[in-house]
Design a binder for these strands. Sequence first.
RNA 1: GGUCCCUUCGUCUAUCGGUUAGGACACCAGAUUUUCAUUCUGGGAAGAGGGGUUCGACUCCCCUAGGGACUGCCA
Length: 488
Amino acid sequence: MLRARPAVSHGPCSGSPTPMTDRSAVVTRFAPSPTGSLHIGGARTALFNQLYARHTGGTFLLRIEDTDRERSTQANVQIILDGLAWLGIAPDGEPVFQHARADRHREAVAAMLASGGAYRDFTPPEELEAERERARAEGRVVRSAWRDRDPSEAPQGAPYTVRLKAPLSGETVVDDLIKGRVVFQTKELDDLVLLRSDGAPTYNLAVVVDDHDMGVTHVIRGDDHLNNAARQTLIYQALGWTVPAFAHLPLIHGPDGAKLSKRHGAQAVGEFADLGYLPEALRNYLARLGWGHGDDEIFSDAEAVAWFDVTDVVKAPARLDWAKLNHINQHYIRVADNRRLADLALEVHRSRGVHIAGDRLPDLPRAVALVKEGAQTTLQLADLTLFALKSRPLALDAKTQGLLTAETRALLGRLRHRLATSPWEVPALEAAIRGFAQAEGIGIGKFGAALRGVLSGGAPAPDLASSLVALGKDEALGRIDDALSQVQ
RNA sequence: GGUCCCUUCGUCUAUCGGUUAGGACACCAGAUUUUCAUUCUGGGAAGAGGGGUUCGACUCCCCUAGGGACUGCCA
């Protein structure tokens, strides 16, 4: 018999106490495969696992499923770790690397072999392929002839895989927390390969052994594993282990309802960061995708933890809706700290190769405060703050040049003096501008566009008073002076 | 082909046998306005189809259609 619960092998810097302490406590895990980056669907799976663990006062673990040595890369592991960190999803304890536990997996297989729950399959690949075709034609599941043959009949030293000896009758039930009771006819479940011919454990075996050893009580994962859950149940039974609770999340589709792919704009969480989304916004949006709490749309992490329950997750797949993500992101930009946003905007400018003079930087947070209402992403925030970051003298765009007639120049000259005596605050400057228009007996339209152009150089800018404040008195008046002294 | 899952406004969702089927995003119209945006007001918009069960079905059951997953010595 196997050890009930061997120590979990941790990552490089092991030594932290094993997270599982209370047998009755909930333990969830996120188990991504480093054969690609962290997908947005995976990110949501991680989020739900974390929310459920936090909600129940349980533990949330991370396991890297790197049993596919060919396709797993260290770079992808790092991308996944970075992605989770960026999103603000922090697992408890060190991540478990599945590959490092291969011996333990083989040990479990040895036990199954010994108990008759598994068998050695010497079927050569070509023959297997033929059987696969036959089985498909007959509408049944693939079965190896070696299931009931004596291994001693195999040629000496012939390569073999080890397969699960699945029962041939009865029902296998997956009591899913989201999908409900799903019944499979056991004979429809095939004999999974447990160990490859090179002795390497397969995914289905490894998940079961690791989930068991890690004390996972609730397996919350993508819908695409629902069929696997039945077959994994058979492995649990063969090992004599308790089957965990399952919760299969419906997948996230692209806006057109098709499986999410590159043509939908973004899949990896890193791309969402590059597109100017805030992690808290993405978290909120992701939580609303497939789950909800009444009419609540915008909620804090604490509220999400308090309200979340896997059983409330919707059964149908959801589509990624950029418009709604934008809206939520806009909300979080509005409430975000200006210095933080300024740094984010600056990062965008730098990545765009926009040179910004150091003396303009201190004004950025103030500019951010005045324009952030209109930004849905930090990319847009960068667009909206560009006017404030330009260096004098500004290159005026053609439209502004055209507006600077002798008459307009005269108006701006007089306005400049009025502004210079005003307190440098939005209400006061607004009053000054209105007062000026009134005194001149003209509408703001007569000079407003020109003033904006002079202040911004043609880049998008907020309303006049806000633009003036965003720039600061010296810079604003200086820009006006520059324009007025410019040779016609 | 086989097994399994899914189906309420364009999208995300509420409803958990009795509601004028609610909200959000998007969209349309109007108001505000010195650009863009913001803001405010109003509006259109849904239970895939067909059978049952029931006094009464979006809600429970069955069938059909459509979508999806799995069917690998990938995960």
